[in-house]
Design a protein around this nucleic acid. Structure first.
Lengths: 129, 129
DNA sequence: CAGCAACTGACAACCGTTGTCAAAACCAGG
DNA sequence: CCTGGTTTTGACAACGGTTGTCAGTTGCTG
């Protein structure tokens, strides 16, 4: 059904880069970074791997205000949220059991099922202030 | 500095429509609806008014998963969140003082300032289930 | 009522993203 | 090792939502 993906130079490069950088990066930023490192990878290919990783749940996806998608390798595969610096993109993983409980409760009160939620916190980190 | 906007047929039509429909609508949907009603307004103009209204805080903006922006006139100008049906787009305004407190506390713990957050809840409403 | 500034809308440009397809790279099985 | 087929790659074109352009129109103020 789903054949195991091959381990190619490009796949490794993208995965590696995502492990090294911190903060959320757009596909185009990742593409540019790879180019600078000499490990040049086609933009199309970057998009493909980044999406595959997102589908596999190995990276988290966020949307900037302008709709651009940004990606980040996450420490825990479990559900969590992010505190993101709007200046440098650095981010911290946060958890909020209270929020989880609250959302599902409110949703149930209104008769909603199959509930999901998105929660992201933006601010300016100490270094950028 | 900011000259008061003029009240034109188009401006009124967009604002009116947003008051009548419930749920989040994309600029293109609004454009189509206006066209059907006969009160045809250029797509560019719809975008402009919808953004102006968003800037003025009179409508809320959300991003669908594919990055498309959707708009909704909100009852209260105060900060609040939404419980949105992913099938029909119907939405309910919700408030969560606990969430507000929690986010600002967590942000402060990590040295972040100028904190904002986005929180949206998606589910399937009773009618669509 | 005149005149100017703001508004409109068809159109083109933009930008992130996705589809296409021939060429290259990976990985068996001989 | 080769070799065959299958997957992956990447330049390029296409796409869709959004924004810029600019001449023509329309509110509004004097």
């Amino acid at each position: 059904m789903s054949p195991a993906p091959r381990t190619t130079r490009q796949r490794t490069a993208v995965a590696d880069l995502l492990s090294r950088v911190d903060g959320f990066r757009s596909a185009q930023e990742l593409h540019e970074l790879l180019r600078r490192e000499g490990a040049s990878v086609g933009l199309t290919t970057v998009y493909r791997h980044v999406q595959a990783l997102a589908d596999a749940g190995e990276v988290d996806v966020l949307r900037h205000e302008d709709g651009e998608a940004v990606y980040r390798r996450c420490a825990s595969p479990a559900h969590h949220h992010h505190l993101v610096c709007r200046a440098c993109g650095r981010s911290v993983e946060i958890e909020g059991p209270a929020v989880e409980r609250w959302t599902s409760q409110v949703a149930a009160e209104h008769g909603f099922t199959d509930v999901q939620h998105t929660l992201e916190v933006f601010g300016t980190c100490a270094d950028c202030a």
